[in-house]
């Protein structure tokens, strides 16, 4: 049933996207081009959130099967958080690849201060072992978190993103519909910028040194 409804969605969505683009144009005009006393927002290439996002106080299971408290482990670091799944064909590997390539290009005093945390929205398939094998192909330092379905769903709610849903692709395959942007928490464990699909290496090379060295000072 859900499948047939989905098929009818795109045209309606186009309208919504058009509205969002216009709304975005107005909001962006205020947020980014709002003058020189904006606390330096304009230096960032990432999308500035209209309100800061707080890091959830959550303990999940890492790629080694050990408990991982996000807030404790993030202390003193910039944490790039992404909710995805390892069977994702397109956007997840693109973000992870772009981040790993950027970290390789950046000086050590920046890259050593960045943690990358990939939280699965597909805990049934993404066990710690699966996450470990997946992430090490990008960067062995990337952290993968999983848990029970309830834990990963609650985590997404606490993060303020829509909880992921599934689309059947046939033949036992399914896609996971999930938040498709990387959320960048500065050392104060609050995120002021997000990085959607379409943003990649140029944005990271510009923003990561700022996120590490300057943080983000709201106006």
């Amino acid at each position: 049933m859900k499948f047939t409804v989905r098929g009818a969605v795109p045209i309606a969505l186009l309208g919504l996207v058009a509205v969002a683009v216009v709304a975005g144009a107005i909001a962006l005009g205020m947020a980014v081009f709002g003058g020189s006393d904006d606390g330096g927002k304009a230096e960032y290439m990432g999308a500035v959130t209209s309100r800061p996002v707080e890091m959830p106080d959550a303990t999940l299971t890492d790629q080694d099967g050990k408990p991982f408290n996000l807030k404790q482990e993030s202390e003193g670091y910039v944490t790039l958080l992404y909710v995805g799944y390892t069977h994702c064909p397109d956007i997840c590997p693109t973000h992870l690849y772009n981040i790993s390539e950027s970290l390789k290009k950046l000086p050590k005093d920046v890259s050593s201060k960045v943690k990358v945390v990939f939280v699965t929205a597909d805990p049934e398939r993404d066990t710690p072992e699966v996450l470990k094998d997946y992430l090490k192909t990008f960067d062995p330092n990337f952290i993968g978190l999983t848990g029970t379905r309830e834990q990963t769903d609650t985590f997404q709610e606490d993060l303020g993103v829509s909880v992921a849903t599934r689309t059947d692709l046939g033949g036992g395959n399914y896609a996971v519909n999930h938040a498709a942007y990387v959320i960048a928490f500065t050392k104060d464990e609050v995120a002021y910028t997000v990085y959607p699909a379409g943003m990649g290496i140029p944005e990271w090379l510009n923003d990561l040194p700022l996120l590490v060295k300057k943080g983000f000072k709201p106006a």
Partner: peptide
């Protein structure tokens, strides 16, 4: 807040 961000994102895209 995130929906607000997404409006920006849509424009950025």
């Amino acid at each position: 807040a995130l929906f607000g961000a997404l409006a920006l994102v849509a424009f950025g895209l």
